[in-house]
Amino acid sequence: MGRPLQMEKQPSQVLWNLVFAVLLLVIGLGIFKSSQSIDYTWRWERIPQYIVYQAENELRAEYDGTITANDAGQLILTNDFDADEQAVIEGFSDIQVNEGDLIFEGDLLAVSYEWQPGPIANGLAMTIKLSLVAIVFAILLGVISGLARISPNPALRHLSVLYIELIRGTPLLVQIFIVYFFIGTVLNLDRFTAAVAALSIFTGAYIAEIIRAGIESINKGQMEAGRSLGMGRGQTMRYIILPQAFKQVLPPLAGQFINLIKDSSLVSVISLTDLTKAGRETVSSTFSPFEVWFTVALLYLVLTGLLSYVVRRMELKYAVNR
């Protein structure tokens, strides 16, 4: 019972967890002190309104008139010069007039407040949308070129190697410029399409290598067993090799998706307002770069953390039969 008995001396759990906590504290204190030494005023209160804010929606009178109430208790503005022209004041949370009030054109009748996403939330939405669409195409491209990479057909194989080597040998930033300014101009692509294309082409090359390695990790006997039963190469691949390879490639694939989310920050260079670009715009209007960039970093961390969590759940699910 209790702790397992073993000969080798084990480090004290309590002591070293305490050391870890103290180290964290020291690092935090260091950051705090260093920000003090450069005389920076933290204004965290400015940040939330760039994520969500309450937009005011005002209703103003379009003509001179009088306020009356109908049977349902709703207030109605009736034109003093034309009794047929009436407007019901409804759907507003804060009504500023009472029954019997005399109203002049342009007076404030009612206000409602609505939560609106701020630039950072919009940027976050763009980053999510961009990453999701790019992931779908990257998987498609990666699986196709991964299979082509091990095809017995030399044309397919060489094409796949060429693609993978070209993409892995050049920086993503340069690829984004090429896709947007060259291919984008030739094919008349909009910014979003260009960004999706650049990201999925880039990630697809890495996924291709992951898929290839996954397939090659499956015992050769599996292919032989499938073929010996009269199934074709494609059928064996689909029903026997790929389902097994899928489980093998999940962890590296997850790493690649996380990279894709982070790499999507580079598309801000072609003026696509993703999370990073939104951060830059917010800095220029708040003059609070520290707070903004910490917020942006935290949001990326939430995205990638969620993705890791989902993939870990999938790994557990597919590991049941082993």
Binding site: N219, G221, Q222, A225, S228, L229, G230, G232, Q244, N321
Partner: peptide
């Protein structure tokens, strides 16, 4: 070759069952 293999069953030393 698949037509031929339909008529020729094979049993391997390492079984090669499909684990999934």
């Amino acid at each position: 070759v698949n037509k031929l293999r339909e008529e020729v069953g094979m049993v391997f030393q390492s079984f090669n069952l499909f684990p999934h």
